[in-house]
Write a protein that binds this DNA or RNA. Structure first.
Lengths: 117, 117
DNA sequence: TTGACACGAAACCATTTGGTGTCGTAAAAT
DNA sequence: ATTTTACGACACCAAATGGTTTCGTGTCAA
């Protein structure tokens, strides 16, 4: 029985702490202790987040002596981009249709589309 | 005014059922009973997922008689696209990885970068 | 050799999540 | 007028999640 229930990318990025981790690890490879220094929680907690990210393929680990260094591995985010691609047409359509109609920030007072007037 | 939404977009799309919901509701506006007919769970469960999506702004509800019709509202997904945009350079641009290698002191490994990549 | 450090594993806890079923009520249908 | 339908509001439950502390082990330093 192979381990099927890995974490997927969608789950992995759902947590704000993990998104911060990705950003941090994009800058540079870092060991756990240094990483956890950036967060208001225990090293163990950060470590568990890192595991989730690793299971989703979003970070890679490298053992160097007694430390484990982590670094961003962005490629799995392409899944997300692909998923998003499907929905782009929905807001592109809306925008072009509403362009002449709503020029505000999206806090529309009317719902739906009416002809002028 | 607008209270901080309890669920954000990242959380909302983390669940596979909710992603299916988005896809379904992109096709067409639908009432709850019809929607839940597409899922192997109770209407109440689907309704709760719809609420999460609504809190994230990803669906809009419209009361029509005794039914509540839901439809995709894709615009908040732009946040996701924007977030993703930051990471595109990591897979589009191998040069950035080279840059990181060069900027580090380079004494930490002998196997850091291989030709061809 | 002894001690400090880095880290994962494990046990534990509170809260959230994803699901269930029941019930009340407004709207439609008969 | 009565019944059926659509739905949200609840109350409830098991499992997952996000956090903690403690402990064991491998690695580096004195």
């Amino acid at each position: 029985m192979a381990a099927a229930p890995k974490h997927d990318v969608f789950q992995a990025i759902a947590d704000p702490t993990r998104r911060q981790l990705l950003k941090l690890l994009g800058e540079q490879e870092m060991p756990v202790t240094v990483i956890s220094g950036h967060f208001p929680m225990s090293r163990t907690a950060v470590s568990k987040h890192l595991r989730v990210l690793a299971e989703a393929g979003l970070v890679k680990e490298r053992k160097v002596g007694r430390e484990t260094r982590y670094q961003l591995e962005a490629r799995p985010l392409q899944q997300l981009k692909e998923w998003l691609g499907y929905y782009e047409r929905f807001w592109e359509n809306k925008v072009s249709m509403l362009k002449h109609y709503v020029e505000s920030d999206g806090t529309d007072t009317k719902q739906g589309l009416r002809p002028e007037g």
